[in-house]
Simulated assay, not measured.
Amino acid sequence: MREHEPVVILADRREHGLQKGDIGAVVHVYGDGEAYEVEFVSGNGQTVAVLTLAASEIRSLAKTEILHVRELASA
């Protein structure tokens, strides 16, 4: 995964208002991809969370996947 690439979170992070399947963008790659700084934003561009996640906590967004909209959960 590279900077600016969309990624999918693999588990809920309720304390940050995130659910499994939410899409974020890689803003920084640590080391050789052991961890990633990922920004999650709302539909109007407001940052919801910026998290440092291990490679095992995210995956690349597949070209064949369709995006879905949901209301932002309360933290």
Score class of each variant (00 low, 15 high):
Ala11Pro: 00
Met1Tyr: 13
Met1His: 08
Met1Ser: 08
Ile9Cys: 07
Val48Asp: 04
Leu10Asn: 04
Glu57Tyr: 01
Glu71Met: 12
Gln46Thr: 14
Val8Arg: 11
Leu67Asp: 09
Ala25Tyr: 14
Arg2Thr: 07
Ser60Ala: 13
His16Gly: 07
Ala55Gly: 13
Asp22Cys: 09
Glu39His: 10
Gly33Asn: 02
Gly31Tyr: 07
Arg14Gln: 12
Asn44Gly: 03
Leu61Ser: 04
Gly33Phe: 08
Gly45Leu: 09
Val27Pro: 07
Glu65His: 07
Val27Cys: 13
Val38Glu: 08
Ile9Pro: 03
Glu71Phe: 10
Arg70Ala: 15
Glu71Asn: 03
Ile66Gly: 15
Pro6Tyr: 02
Leu72Phe: 12
Gly17Glu: 00
Gly45Ser: 08
Leu18Ile: 03
Ser56Trp: 10
Glu15Phe: 12
Thr47Ser: 15
Glu3Ala: 09
Asp32Thr: 12
Glu15Arg: 11
Ser56Lys: 02
Gly31Ile: 02
Ser56Tyr: 08
Glu15Pro: 09
Val8Tyr: 01
Val41Leu: 12
Leu53Thr: 06
Asp32Val: 01
Thr47Asp: 14
Glu37Arg: 05
Arg59Ala: 03
Asp12Val: 10
Val7Pro: 15
Tyr30Thr: 01
Leu72Ala: 13
Leu10Glu: 02
Glu3Gln: 11
Ala55Asp: 12
Ile66Thr: 15
Gly24Glu: 00
Val48Gly: 00
Ala75Tyr: 14
Lys63Asn: 14
Thr52Tyr: 06
Met1Leu: 05
Gln19Met: 14
Gly17Pro: 01
Val41Tyr: 10
Val27Met: 02
Ala25Leu: 13
Gly45Ile: 02
Leu53Met: 08
Ser56His: 06
Gly33Ile: 06
Val29Leu: 01
Ala25Pro: 02
Phe40Gly: 12
Glu15His: 05
Asp12Leu: 09
Ala54Gln: 11
Asn44Val: 01
Gln19Asp: 14
Ala25Lys: 11
Thr64Met: 00
Asp22Thr: 01
Gln46Cys: 14
Ala25Ile: 14
Arg13Phe: 15
Ala54Leu: 14
Ile58Asn: 03
Gly45Asn: 11
Ile23His: 09
Asp12Glu: 03
Leu51Met: 05
Val27Leu: 07
Val29Trp: 11
Gln46Ala: 15
Glu65Met: 13
Ser60Gln: 02
Arg2Gly: 11
Asp22Asn: 09
Met1Gln: 07
Val48Met: 10
Val38Asp: 07
Arg14Trp: 00
Asp12Gln: 04
Glu71Lys: 14
Gln46Val: 14
Gly24Pro: 05
Glu5Arg: 06
Gln19Ile: 10
Ile9Ser: 06
Ser74Val: 14
Thr52His: 10
Phe40Val: 13
Leu72Glu: 05
Met1Lys: 11
Val29Arg: 10
Gly33Asp: 08
Gly31Asp: 01
Tyr36Lys: 09
Ser60Trp: 10
Glu5Cys: 06
Thr52Gly: 12
Asp12Ile: 08
Arg13Thr: 14
Val69Gly: 04
Glu37Trp: 08
Leu53Asn: 00
Gln46Pro: 10
Thr52Ile: 12
Pro6Arg: 01
Gly24Trp: 11
Glu37Met: 03
Gln46Trp: 13
Glu34Asn: 08
Val38Ser: 03
Leu53Tyr: 11
Arg70His: 15
Lys63Glu: 15
Leu51Asp: 09
Asp22Ile: 06
Ile58Phe: 08
Val38Trp: 05
Ala55Tyr: 10
Glu37Asp: 03
Arg70Lys: 13
Glu71Arg: 14
Val26Gly: 09
Ile58Gly: 04
Ser60Thr: 13
